[in-house]
């Protein structure tokens, strides 16, 4: 059991987290944030490994991981 949180307002929508999530649990949000980007969005399921690859590659330090 693990999950992540994404700071949607800080996210600039580079989607490196999307590219590196081994389970494909992060997607581009349909909604715009205040900076005008479609932030990344975590699709909460039991499949998250808590591997933190998303957080490690995030250039904007938007992701925190819970396990």
């Amino acid at each position: 059991m693990a999950r992540i949180t994404i700071d949607k307002e800080k996210c600039k929508g580079c989607f490196l987290c999307v590219a590196f999530c081994p389970k494909g649990l992060i997607k581009k949000s349909d909604k715009l944030n205040k900076r005008g980007a479609n932030p990344a969005e975590f699709h909460e399921t039991d499949a998250c490994l808590g591997c933190a690859m998303c957080a490690v590659i995030c250039p904007d330090c938007c992701i925190e991981v819970y396990k």
């Binding site: 059991m1 957080a55 925190e64 819970y66 396990k67």
Partner: peptide
């Protein structure tokens, strides 16, 4: 659940 990856203290959260 414990936080296993968090924002470092020495980096301002902006």
């Amino acid at each position: 659940m414990n936080k296993v990856f968090s924002h470092p203290k020495s980096l301002r959260n902006i």
